[in-house]
Design a protein around this nucleic acid. Structure first.
Length: 328
DNA sequence: TCGTGGCCACTCGTGATCGA
DNA sequence: TCGATCACGAGTGGCCACGA
């Protein structure tokens, strides 16, 4: 738990209970209390929706340090970026629960910072199971992953070179699946078109180089529209993915097609607090509410057993009126 | 005997609701 | 509008069972 929270910056007590203490909240709470008394971690309860947020101290980072992993400094997570941080941690925890090895952005940056020609990053890639040529993973999966070369001719195993100046873009985390690298992007803030295009072109180059196997975008509706495009009177207005040749032009994307190098799906929180904060970001202002009211509405939706997603159900014309009549 | 995990009752803080 | 009350989530400590 300390190692994961250190790599991803923070974790909630609810996440800790679910993923590290067999779903037993009391046990998680007691273990966290012991670790806090031992000076290994700190907690913050400033964000009500997040519940208790945990992050390791410098002593905790040292205690969790494992051979083969880069050394990371302790940091106090900022509250402004907490929703994004917790969504990333949650997505990584879900993959980890399925037995997939995940590498955080902090770990990627740390290994790529080494003052060498990319040997440290290559060694780490081997260590986490990437099918580097000559590695056991390459033998096992019968293929080899190549790095992307940046503008200076340096091999990049985790950073994605973008722009003419050769700067790097970092996925929110990467998953190592069958020896291949899958970049995961949790995009909940609409980026300017030129910035998004720059990132997409960087990924396109890495995919063509045999480096990144797939980019999985978990996004809010506005970002989804920017990437996929949208229905129009005349048919379908292309988004950025069609502009770059990742989707067929002039038609709605069919995500049931397997093996696409770019996959887009809606960002979803599993934890109630994370889900609430995401809801407040995507719902129209008239439907935003306190955490408590939101939970009451969620209970009504669950009882309704609706085929619609909660947010879709909430946005139906008469749902709010009904909820208000239930409350009065 | 000790450490750990799990259950339970209790307290506290916060936000929603209600009535004066 | 404001104070009282209520509901609920989160935190705490006690107790017991179990296994090493």
């Amino acid at each position: 738990m300390l190692e994961f929270a250190g790599a991803f910056g923070a974790i909630t007590l609810r996440h800790a209970a679910e993923h590290f203490y067999g779903g037993v909240w009391e046990t998680a709470r007691k273990r966290v209390q012991y670790m806090r008394e031992a000076g290994l971690l700190e907690r913050s309860d400033n964000l009500r929706w997040a519940g208790t947020v945990l992050y390791p101290t410098a002593a905790g980072m040292a205690a969790a340090a494992a051979p083969g992993f880069p050394e990371l400094r302790a940091l106090v997570p900022s509250e402004e970026r907490m929703l994004h941080r917790l969504l990333v941690a949650e997505a990584a925890l879900r993959m980890r629960a399925r037995g997939v090895r995940v590498v955080s952005e902090r770990q990627m940056r740390a290994v790529e910072r080494a003052n060498d020609s990319g040997q440290a990053a290559e060694a780490f890639a081997r260590f986490v199971g990437v099918a580097v040529a000559g590695s056991s993973a390459a033998d096992e999966f019968g293929m080899a992953v190549s790095p992307t070369m940046d503008g200076a001719g340096r091999a990049r195993w985790f950073g994605v070179p973008v722009g003419v100046a050769g700067e790097l873009h970092w996925p929110d985390f990467t998953a190592i699946v069958g020896g291949r690298i899958v970049a995961v992007e949790m995009e909940i803030t609409h980026k300017e078109r030129w910035r998004m295009l720059q990132v997409l072109r960087g990924y396109k180059m890495s995919i063509e180089a045999g480096h990144i196997a797939q980019v999985l975008w978990e996004v809010t509706p506005d970002v989804q529209m920017q990437l996929e495009g949208r229905r129009s009177v005349g048919g379908w207005d292309d988004g950025l993915l069609a502009d770059l040749g990742f989707l067929e032009s002039g038609q709605a994307p069919d995500w049931s097609v397997k093996g696409r190098p770019m996959v887009v799906r809606p960002a979803q929180g599993r934890d109630d607090g994370v889900r609430y904060a995401l809801s407040q970001k995507t719902l129209p202002p008239s439907l935003r509410c306190s955490y408590r009211v939101w939970r009451q509405w969620l209970q009504v939706w669950e009882r309704d057993d609706s085929a619609l997603e909660f947010e879709e159900w909430l946005m139906r014309p008469r749902t709010l009126q009904r909820l208000q009549s239930l409350g009065s």
